[in-house]
Design a protein around this nucleic acid. Structure first.
Lengths: 156, 156
DNA sequence: CTAGGACCTCAAGCTAACTTGAGGTCAAGA
DNA sequence: TCTTGACCTCAAGTTAGCTTGAGGTCCTAG
């Protein structure tokens, strides 16, 4: 074990420790660091030391990715927070508000996708085009591009 | 317009028409076809003709992608349906059941992500590690890999 | 003091999901 | 008939998000 974690909690974590605890590869942590998603201090011997908060940050990144948010967007959001410690209440409120909208939108899409499936059981509208979700007469064709029935909002 | 769509509805659509209506590029439709996500008939002149149902299929693909599902997974799901027309009730039930689980899981993750943000307003736990979501004493460290607080379920 | 596991950097490689480009065909109006 | 725009194929290029490998350093137990 790297730095005396035998008794009590170490104040910082080595890269291997973070990898093990967060479930991502060491190379991924390096990669995230180059992208500015996380950051570290260095020991005299040039080894990375992470604040414990990095674990939560990594969790956040992974979960956000999982629901389809790009690292670039995640980075932008996280950049709103001071990289070191203690974000202000204002920082949090801003980040939360931004993401609220994004997440709510994705939730709506997921819900729609799921409900579509539910509605279609026993109907087969996806391929036979005949159920209550059907687009009658294809009237929407002139309303611009994009999947209009399922899509809640397309990004620019 | 390609095939007499002036009056009434054409029974099939050209690739450009599908692109315009679905909001994806022609090249993307070609690509999806090579991946087996959609399929087409050909005219004597070797041009693609799509059944109208392809529009719904493309919508489905895009929305599923948007919430983080890979084309491979989408292909697998869609492969459960007969490529041509009229899936049976059994087909639909199977597809729906599979996706229900997947979608519910992602919904749960999104919700958790969103709620975490909500809870953290004015607290800053993401980086100062001090709020009701805090991981006390880091006790979870030995429970295996992965972000345990936010993550609902990791894929293998 | 020395072995070996944990770290370091940097460059190159890989997969998914498309896009772009070259070179050629099809089809419908002037 | 000629032309023009929609279409075709196939190969190569692009971006995101990592992983792998080579070659070298750090540090802790024995």
């Amino acid at each position: 074990m790297t730095q005396g974690a035998k008794h009590g909690l170490p104040t910082t974590l080595g890269v291997g420790e973070v990898a093990r605890r967060s479930g991502v590869a060491v190379s991924t942590l390096h990669f995230y660091e180059t992208k500015g998603l996380i950051r570290s201090e260095r020991t005299v011997g040039n080894q990375r030391r992470y604040a414990r908060a990095v674990l939560r940050r990594v969790s956040f990144i992974r979960v956000a990715q999982r629901v389809g948010i790009s690292l670039a967007d995640i980075a932008t959001a996280l950049a709103a927070l001071p990289p070191g410690e203690a974000p202000s209440r204002r920082d949090w409120t801003r980040l939360s508000a931004q993401w609220r909208a994004e997440l709510d939108e994705r939730m709506a899409q997921l819900k729609k996708l799921r409900d579509t499936l539910d509605d279609c059981i026993g109907c087969g509208c996806l391929s036979i085009d005949r159920c209550r979700l059907r687009n009658p007469g294809d009237r929407l064709a002139s309303e611009g591009a994009g999947p209009r029935r399922l899509l809640v909002k397309q990004r620019p």
